[in-house]
Simulated assay, not measured.
Amino acid sequence: MSVQTSPLDHPWREPGKGRGLAEIVYRFYLLKLIVHKDLRVRYRGSILGMLWSYVKPAVQFVVFYFAVGEFLRMNDRVDNYAIYLFSGIVIVNFFTESFGNATRSIAGNYALVKKIYLPRELFPVSALWVAAIHFFPQLVVLIIGALLFGWAPTFLQLLAAVGALIILAIFCLGLGLLFGAINVLFRDAENLVDLFVMVATWASPVLYTWQQVFSVSEKNGGWLFPIYMLNPITPVVEVFHWAFWEPTIGATGESLPPNMAMWMGIATVVSLATLALGEYVFRRLDGRFAQEL
């Protein structure tokens, strides 16, 4: 004989007192629904739809290629500059979309946040998922382009690229949780993030090479380059150059900065620390989201 239970028999949990990011596992179906909603809202009334994930990086690539490659003569300095440029662009685009969308994810879903309680971490994670959906078509284009230039990577290079992408995803999620929570209280966070993503393109070796930064640093006492490499995006971009661009020029590791293993280790630690800080702040402010929105 089964015993019926009342909803009051189940313990209630305060907002922000749940399992945190572990809710992704327990609420995975709900996460997929949110991702589907985000994609449907984004492309509602759009003629091109998902093709916009190709159009934006294509235009960005053409502008940078001619402005920097042709006019500033980077084509003469870097062999197969097109592959070098695009392998950096796809990574920076993933960062900017993940970070920007995750920051706006709570405020942008205010109707759901105010009506019902659900694990709010799902919103920044869904923003990261949507960015990944837009990233992989660009990655396919990069691979096709690299193959046309004779791309033949080693297994270690491919493994390093996957690891670098995971590290960047952790960093993006940490920043998204942190600024997504702060953005609920102070909408200035959105403008601050816009500045960050604008600087990200120029603060990473996408349009230029790390050797140029190293040369300037050496002329000024050598202090600039270590600071430059502390940015987790920088070693991630360099790993993507190593995995996708270097095999097209027949190099054997010359493209990597000195002590690359150390910089990747630091990037991993910074990313995990950012995730821990973002989750802590997010859960501390979670209970205020509904009333602030």
Rank of each mutant, 00 (worst) to 15 (best):
259 N>C: 03
118 L>R: 05
60 Q>I: 11
225 F>Y: 14
121 E>T: 10
272 L>K: 06
234 T>S: 03
69 G>S: 03
167 I>H: 05
273 A>S: 07
276 A>P: 06
153 P>K: 15
104 R>K: 12
16 G>L: 08
140 V>W: 10
252 T>F: 09
194 D>A: 10
56 K>N: 11
292 E>N: 11
46 S>N: 09
59 V>F: 07
213 V>G: 04
96 T>W: 03
279 E>R: 05
7 P>Q: 05
164 A>I: 06
69 G>P: 03
168 L>D: 12
191 N>K: 10
72 L>K: 14
24 I>E: 01
98 S>T: 03
140 V>A: 15
81 Y>F: 14
46 S>M: 12
218 E>F: 00
188 D>W: 08
273 A>F: 03
26 Y>C: 08
269 V>C: 00
19 R>Y: 08
98 S>D: 06
209 T>W: 01
24 I>L: 05
105 S>Q: 14
251 A>R: 04
195 L>V: 07
269 V>L: 03
215 S>N: 13
112 L>Y: 10
169 A>I: 02
138 Q>A: 15
20 G>I: 02
220 N>D: 07
201 T>L: 12
19 R>L: 08
221 G>I: 12
253 G>E: 02
171 F>E: 01
8 L>Q: 12
43 Y>W: 13
199 V>W: 11
89 I>L: 15
232 P>W: 08
29 Y>T: 04
129 W>D: 04
281 V>L: 07
192 L>Q: 08
190 E>V: 11
163 G>F: 02
118 L>Y: 12
54 Y>N: 05
184 V>M: 12
